[in-house]
Amino acid sequence: MNAVEPMAVAPAAYLTVGTLLFFIGMAGALLKRNALSIFLSIELMMNAANLLLLTYARMRGDISGQVIVFFVIAIAAAEASIGLAMFVALFRARSTVDVDKINLLKW
């Protein structure tokens, strides 16, 4: 498939899939207690947003959408490395990554 012909599958289908994945990721981010599982769900949300961006890029025939997705993927890599380093440091300090137990700042 190339970008100048009309899309065989309706864009609404791609948008629905992306939205569904976004909310599954949001459910994981809200409901899980393991910090790494929350982080995984956030990565899923980012990827769902990437899917939406690519759908719009395809509809407009504009490559800027793909460029933005390129940047988002690279930024996700940077953020994942910092986040995981923080989790490692956190685990060394508190011996747990359960977010309910990280409550020193609670009143």
Binding site: N2, V9, T55, R58, V69, I73
Partner: peptide, 10 residues
């Protein structure tokens, strides 16, 4: 799905 959306590089 990205390949279907004409973005094989992505």
């Amino acid at each position: 799905l990205s390949v279907l959306l004409a973005a094989p590089f992505i």
